[in-house]
Design a protein around this nucleic acid. Structure first.
Lengths: 147, 147
DNA sequence: ATAGATGGTCAAGCAACTTGACTATATGCC
DNA sequence: GGCATATAGTCAAGTTGCTTGACCATCTAT
């Protein structure tokens, strides 16, 4: 593969990622929620059993101050709440509210809708193959902002 | 495909895109250039024959003021220069300098290096397939920031 | 010739991050 | 138990990369 092709691949990947982000966000807004794309990653981390601000910061790859500000915002808007941590009095467990869960489901629906438009172009099996391969090359560390 | 799978696909796509961006940027820096990821998209647009600030703004999906600031920066750092536009005295044509071309080549090398690590995992043919499919679903409009 | 559109810049404002400083609680060691 | 150090979280201030608004110079159409 030539170098210029690799850069074209990178451009295509970023374009697809940006487009998908936009579509999911639009879909979430259309369902009556307000959300910034970064929230999706936060919600994903909070979803199972909640998380502390520091854990969230690690997951998002930002400082704990930035994570704390993000939590302030989603709490203020009713998507999550801070609870005392069961075993560590310093920490506070941030958990999704029912509204937070509803927003998460809306994001899943919006994502499914966007992916469906890919299925129309590529076919079901190719999308599955794409999914599988992306899963194998995607890193597992903290999320990094794409640009 | 279930909704939650679609969201996982989105996450994988964004993670891969973020990781690739980071690697390319690191590679460019390691080759002695300083560059922000957004520059890559700007350089791509400037490369063939130069572009005006307004064209660049359209390509990047930002205001012309933002594009102008970006041009200020890459000019100040020696990657491009502003020339009088050949047919429109209002406009100024922004073109890459030799250093700008060298940086572009460095980005291509870094991208190729990053993609090579994918080849190790997926194999050459799967990477080609990935490339092909991404090319078909990537939109052709202005680049959108991924988050 | 003139009215409106377009290319570009200057200035101010804003949002999302950062670094630095601090308090409260936990942990390890004697 | 008592103390040194590490960790969770917050407050405050600074930085950055964008935005909106205002403006001038030049082009284009009538």
């Amino acid at each position: 593969m030539q170098n210029s092709e690799a850069l074209a691949l990178a451009a295509a990947l970023l374009a697809a990622a940006g487009d998908l982000t936009q579509r999911i966000n639009d879909g979430v807004v259309a369902r009556g929620f307000e959300a910034r794309p970064a929230w999706g990653f936060a919600f994903t981390r909070l979803a199972p059993d909640g998380a502390t601000v520091t854990e969230l910061a690690g997951h998002l790859g930002v400082t704990k101050q930035a994570a704390s500000q993000l939590v302030d915002e989603i709490v203020r808007k009713g998507y999550a709440e801070r609870r005392p941590h069961p075993v560590d009095a310093r920490a506070r467990l941030v958990v999704l509210t029912e509204r937070g869960w509803a927003c998460t489901r809306a994001a899943e629906e919006a994502a499914a809708e966007a992916v469906r438009s890919w299925t129309d172009v590529l076919g079901e099996s190719d999308v599955r193959a794409l999914c599988d391969r992306l899963g194998r090359i995607a890193p597992h560390g903290p999320i990094r902002p794409t640009w």
